[in-house]
Amino acid sequence: MPIDEPGQNDLAARLTNVDLNLIPPLMALLQEQSVTLAAERIGLSQPAMSHTLARLRALLGDDLLVRSGSKYMLTPRARELLTSVPGVLRSVSERVLHVPAFDPARDARQFILSMTTSTAFLVAPLLLRITETVAPGASFEIRDSTEPGTDIFEKPELDVALVADTVATTYARSTLYRDRWVGVIDTANEQVDGDLTLEHLAALPHVAYQSATFRLNPYIALAAAGVTPTFELISSNFLLIPMLVADSNRIAIAQERLARRLADRFSLRILDLPLVVPPLGIDVLFNPRLAGDSATLWLVEAIRAELRATP
């Protein structure tokens, strides 16, 4: 029945006046057939229960309990409620209040994720593997995010956002994975013979990532070590950084996972950095409207499992 039909509107208007807190005392009154015993059963005073009975009578348009000598008796309407309300309560509990767990083998769900292109380059193949192996009904939409802001969940349909651990946010977050920083050069670059040194990092022109909101830990560490790199090319896209050193004498500092995915395609050599640098963390931000959502929680754990299984 369409929502604008009179009967549906009348029902909706009546339901807005219903206080669900009245249901437990209603059941106690119907089962005990005594204001005093019903009050004791749910921890109310007798005057409070008498007031509640008055409210129920007004709401339902029925006396519910009528005196017969020294006792109360149920009205026909009350006897009907005594048999029907428990089933209604069970139905509400099972169908409305109970949140079913997500079953990846059977349930269909589209997940919408926000992340940078470099993170998507690593995570998207894992998502496709998840649909192929454990969640055939799942599908994914990835939205590019260069500089995540405080309004990242302004659009309510977004499920999770993957951001660097350096991104400040008030949203609930959890570490998805950590990525070590490495040096990347072309395999034909003869200026680095053996291990990478601070002298190499000072002498070679750099292709680097630049962000308006944070500095990369490797360059903070280089500055602390007294090294001032020469930045020949700056990019706001992390995915491009390793590619741009191919067929050149340049060097880049990139995430190891990303570099290893690109090394064979672009003939890149991966080198350990000659100083200690904190790794880059990629965190999951959860949309607050989906707090406790079993499907979203399952997805994050499934991605973690794929990351552990990926060299």
Rank of each mutant, 00 (worst) to 15 (best):
L64D: 07
R57M: 05
A58P: 00
L122E: 02
Y72W: 09
L59I: 00
L89Y: 07
K71V: 05
F140N: 05
T119I: 12
L56I: 02
P100N: 12
H98L: 08
S45H: 10
R109K: 11
H51F: 08
D63Y: 02
A39D: 04
E32Y: 06
P86S: 14
R129Q: 15
G69S: 03
M27A: 04
G137R: 13
G87V: 04
M49L: 06
E32F: 04
R41E: 10
V99W: 04
D63E: 11
E132S: 15
V66A: 03
G43H: 14
A38D: 07
I42E: 00
T131C: 09
A38C: 13
A39T: 07
D63W: 00
L59Q: 06
A48L: 03
P104C: 13
L126I: 10
Q110T: 14
P125R: 09
E32D: 11
L126N: 06
L44G: 03
H98K: 11
L126E: 08
R95A: 11
V85L: 14
T83L: 12
L44N: 08
P25L: 05
T52Y: 01
G87L: 10
R79C: 07
A38T: 09
V85Q: 05
A58S: 05
D103H: 11
T133K: 10
T119F: 05
I130G: 00
T116C: 10
L128N: 15
L65V: 09
T131W: 10
A28G: 03
M27I: 11
S114I: 05
V88P: 00
E40N: 13
A120F: 07
G69D: 04
I112L: 04
A120H: 08
E32P: 04
Y72R: 01
Q31S: 10
R90W: 09
L81Q: 03
